[in-house]
Design a protein around this nucleic acid. Structure first.
Lengths: 233, 233
DNA sequence: ACCCTTTTTATGTCTACACATATTTACCGG
DNA sequence: CCGGTAAATATGTGTAGACATAAAAAGGGT
């Protein structure tokens, strides 16, 4: 009797060995169930999970085939700066540069999808790794959506850590890019002339509204973002 | 009678509304099954999928609780250049700059985890969007692992597209960074002085060996990588 | 050939039940 | 009070069977 894990493994092996090549139709659930000596439900779970992982494509009546393009993407852990720094064995440091409660200006309004003048909290802070500037964080928080933020000084703890812990969110957007720092950014991050920035912009939404927008800028010479993937899960 | 989708949705709503807060124990499967008027298997599937998505934590005998940290990461589609360019409504163009079959030098050997002198294929090519240089691709392919590559001129089609279609792989690594272009890169990509590069390095493995290493460099002023995520799936 | 309807078929989902397994809780002897 | 063992319990997985649903295939009339 084969478990759904055994079945997944066996099918994966056949795909790897090209016994079933991309585009090929594989036997239907009933037949596989007989082969493996299992119930159809068990085979169904194995096939469903492989399809969710992107290795198979399934359509009612048309059957199950090996996915043509084996390319789905990559899963990136977006760690908290603190965890990222400490995880690589360096000492983490934090410093609040600026904190302002204000009405949204045109930029903040656009980023947070709010009307101009809506109450926002503006923050700017620096994160250090072994005493060296590692990330410059510029952030707006929607005060209507996150009332608790008004009471937080953010002097000992960064807003990212606090938000992740305290505020439930339901979706997010990340934009990666490379840019040149302006004079102030270069000064704050202690960068050489001609050194680029690696920039990550992140927007986070609750079920109903934008919670926060952040721009996380790293000195290009000292930062690489790595991800490893295994398509089978 | 509630379907497993209805149940997921309802539980998600309760989590969003903080009726069940992070860390809270939620009712067990049997009780939920009774509430929703469904079988325990149905509830089990809903809870299992929410746990896989990272919203719940489940342990035998200990029960199911709302996950404490709602932060998992983000899934990035890493599209083929062609698909990325055409998907945004621009015209795609390709040009092969250089193709050499050779023994691995020290850099190629290190990238591909091969002994020096092992047979490799070196490629350099440009991808265009609406006639403007969009990506400079520098690549080594392990000829032992991909024998078919020797017969490919890569004059009409880029190696990435061909590899994704023809070669099965099992895992990959991506490294993002920002860098300054050298004089040749600046010339090939038609970049302004002082403009940074957005660089993606990708290594791909089969079950047994490294298949290929690629460095994909984009002009920073013209490239942003975007990803949207919904933790519920 | 064509368009429309019916049949067939593979997957999608659900049920009720059973047994396995990991953990906690309760109990008991010292 | 401690430590070891047994019972209780929530989840994990499996079975057989049923009906739903999407989509391909077959058939029928023009």
């Amino acid at each position: 009797m084969a478990s759904f894990r055994d079945i997944k493994e066996d099918i994966l092996a056949r795909i790897s060995a090209r016994e079933w090549a991309p585009g090929d139709l594989i036997p239907n659930e009933a037949e596989l169930a007989e082969r493996y000596g299992s119930a159809r439900s068990t085979v169904n779970r194995a096939l469903r999970e492989l399809a969710e992982a992107g290795l198979l494509e399934r359509r009612r009546r048309a059957g199950t085939r090996v996915a043509r393009r084996n390319w789905r993407g990559a899963f990136f852990e977006i760690p908290l700066v603190r965890a990222e720094v400490e995880g690589s064995g360096r000492r983490y440091g934090y410093h609040l540069i600026e904190r302002r409660e204000e009405g949204a200006g045109p930029e903040a309004a656009a980023r947070l999808e709010l009307p101009a003048g809506a109450p926002v909290l503006f923050l700017r802070c620096l994160h250090f790794a072994d005493g060296l500037p590692h990330q410059l964080e510029t952030r707006w928080i929607n005060r209507s959506e996150v009332p608790g933020a008004a009471a937080m000084p953010f002097e000992a703890e960064g807003p990212n850590e606090w938000l992740v812990r305290e505020v439930p969110w339901s979706s997010s957007e990340h934009v990666f890019s490379a840019a040149m720092p302006d004079a102030e950014e270069r000064r704050l991050l202690g960068m050489e002339a001609g050194e680029p920035l690696f920039v990550l912009e992140r927007r986070t939404w609750s079920a109903t509204a934008t919670i926060t927008w952040a721009r996380l800028a790293h000195p290009g010479a000292r930062f690489r973002m790595v991800s490893r993937t295994d398509p089978t899960g």
